[in-house]
Amino acid sequence: MSFSDVENPYPLISLPTVPFLAVVTDDLAAYLSCDMALVHNVFIRAINSIWRNAPLVKPADEVAFAGYSLTCLSAIHAHHHGEETFLFPFFQTKLDMSHNLEQHESFHAGMDTFQQYMNHVFQKKDKYDGEKTRALLKAFADPLVQHFHEEIPTISEERLRLLDKDGLQKVSDQLEEHIKSLPGKLTVFPFMMTHHNFEEAPNWPAIPAPIKWFARNIAPFRHYSYWRFSPYTRAGVPQKYSA
């Protein structure tokens, strides 16, 4: 575990020690379960980073920090929309997803309040306040991170093997095409890359090499000021924001 993962309020999800952490496999049931844990850890690292840096943000960096926080929310919203639109309806044919959907509803209002405040800071309509940021974050982060942890056992490899294999491949392909069509490639792409521990899973995310190269070497420069708050540099090196 790197120093970027310690001394944070929210614990990361423990990852299974299996080969597909390092190598993408054709075993979709095994890979999807692990993939979801890795995605959730990206979001937990970002929430920890917002919490950790909120009281440290310099006046010159307030707009960038708001942009960083808004990118995190955008990525989480996109992730949950993909689950609700593609994965969960298919999972529901064999698995009960009702609790997962109920949990999604439990933190939306808090996320919306935080998003509105950060939008106002970003647009310079509201004064930045580190303690207010922490309070608004905690209001939705507590149930959100609990959900991130509790969802993983509901989509375990064993449970996903109960599903029709061809059907699982079909919805996975549909979700992948949907993700490719989403906007935000100059924000969400570098966000994902700078919140993943590549020592744990060197070949994740499972995207084509040219897109991964773009996400690491081109995309970060459009909003370069945002990623100073990320726990990792675009090269995957642990970093801390210097107040």
Rank of each mutant, 00 (worst) to 15 (best):
S2F: 09
P11T: 13
P11K: 10
P11Q: 11
P16K: 13
V18K: 15
F20H: 15
A22D: 14
V23W: 13
V24K: 14
D26R: 13
D26S: 14
D27N: 08
A30K: 12
L32C: 04
S33G: 10
A37G: 06
V42Q: 02
I44W: 03
A46W: 06
S49T: 12
W51S: 11
P55D: 06
E62V: 14
I76Y: 04
H81D: 14
E83C: 06
T85V: 12
T85W: 07
F86C: 05
L87K: 08
F88Q: 03
T93V: 03
T93F: 05
K94Y: 08
L101C: 11
Q103P: 02
H108N: 14
T113E: 15
Q115L: 02
V121Q: 01
K127A: 15
A135Y: 07
L137Y: 08
F148M: 11
H149I: 06
H149V: 08
T154H: 05
I155V: 15
R159K: 15
R159D: 08
D166C: 08
I179L: 11
K180H: 11
L182F: 05
P183N: 03
K185Q: 10
L186G: 03
T187M: 07
M192E: 04
N197H: 08
F198C: 07
F198A: 10
N203M: 12
W204F: 15
A206F: 09
I207N: 04
K212P: 07
R222E: 09
Y226C: 03
Y226N: 06
R228V: 14
F229I: 00
P231S: 08
P231A: 07
P231V: 12
A235Q: 14
K240Y: 08
K240T: 15
S242Q: 14
A243C: 13
